[in-house]
Amino acid sequence: MSPDSATLPPVRSVPFTSPLSWLARGWRDLWKAGGASLLQGAAVAVFSLLLWVLGRDKFGLLVGALSGFLVMAPVLATGFYVLSRSLERGEPARMAEVLRTWLFWQSHYRSRWDHDYWCLVRLGLLLALAGTGWVLTSAAMITLLAPAPVRTPYDFLLLVVLAKDNNLFELWLVLGSVLAAPIFASSVVSIALLLDRRIGLWRAVLTSWQAVLANPVTMALWSFLILALVLVGMATFMLGLALVMPWLGHASWHAYRDLVDSSGLPERQPRSEEPGMGHEQDKAIGS
């Protein structure tokens, strides 16, 4: 282990309008990747639509599930990061590369029990736990505090959003924000960083926080744009998510590349798949 292995990679301060550039570059990557990107977006849209169909009569629970979906979005975006990284390297952006990354994302490890091997899985489980906690909290809050059962979007609008005799909607928003803010700060660049470079889980999370703290106004705009686009996708009976999710996934890759100077860290997945290349890299890095 090198002496500076515990230090964080440098983060950059970026202009306030950078999120617009990320969206523009993400849009370009979306169409360059083509079917490989749109196929993943369609899978997200179909899953969301099924969630809507199954929970349409229990809207109080559905609202929590759909908002919890946002918590898991950074993990779902991993496939889009893979495609944008391939395009950045001048390599073909193919679905085969996405599948290979999901199934054998660190095929060159000496041992798959290495502490660093499971970092993405661990972060995904933490986000899943946070999302599940929010779903249960949201459903319990709406069930217990709403003046009548909330079964439809109209019920939610009438009994929660527009209710004048309680502050349920405000409380729901505050608690949701309290959960969402630290999750956003922890995951906005950490998953892309973990995918791209050999770095431990907590160093990646701290780097993500550092990027947010260095660019608070810019990242507030970025979070607003993410929320707005996802809501547009959901408002089209989830079908718009087939386009919105790939777009945001590719844009998030460019956010990571602009915000974090990861050049001092070794690549997690070598550019070349020559036998032994990753093994030698692991020897040089250690754990």
Rank of each mutant, 00 (worst) to 15 (best):
A43S: 09
L38F: 10
G68I: 00
S67P: 05
G64E: 03
A93Q: 03
R56A: 04
G233K: 00
L265I: 15
W105L: 09
V160T: 00
A163Q: 06
F80T: 00
T152Q: 11
A251K: 00
L83E: 13
A255Q: 07
L99V: 05
L231D: 04
F16K: 12
W134S: 00
A45C: 01
I226M: 02
S252C: 01
K58R: 15
K58Y: 15
M245P: 01
A192V: 06
G176N: 11
I285V: 12
L144V: 14
M141I: 14
Q210K: 15
D155L: 00
T101M: 10
G264C: 10
A36D: 06
D258Y: 09
L175C: 11
L38A: 11
A65F: 01
Q210A: 14
I191R: 08
T152I: 02
T78K: 09
G60P: 07
L76H: 04
L66R: 05
K32F: 13
S111E: 10
G264Q: 03
G264N: 06
T7E: 15
E97F: 02
E88N: 10
P182M: 09
L213N: 13
F69D: 03
W247Y: 02
M95I: 03
F69A: 03
L70G: 03
G233H: 03
Q106C: 11
L129D: 00
P15E: 10
R198G: 10
V63F: 05
A93P: 01
P216A: 02
A284K: 08
D196K: 14
A36T: 05
G90D: 04
P9H: 08
V121C: 10
V205N: 02
A251E: 08
S138M: 01
R12H: 11
A130M: 04
L70M: 01
V121H: 10
E274H: 10
S13G: 08
L201H: 08
Q106E: 14
L49G: 10
D4L: 13
A148P: 14
R112C: 13
V244M: 03
S177P: 11
C119F: 11
A140I: 08
T78E: 12
R28F: 15
A24D: 05
G200H: 08
L38G: 05
F80E: 06
R25T: 09
Y256D: 08
L159S: 14
A228Y: 04
G55S: 07
V44Q: 12
L239T: 04
E170D: 13
R94A: 12
Q281P: 13
G90L: 11
A96I: 02
A96V: 12
F47E: 14
L39A: 05
C119S: 15
R112Y: 15
N167L: 10
H250Q: 06
R56W: 07
W253Y: 05
V189W: 06
A211N: 12
D29Y: 09
W118E: 01
A146G: 06
G26L: 05
F59G: 02
A36W: 04
E88G: 12
D261T: 08
S67E: 08
A228N: 01
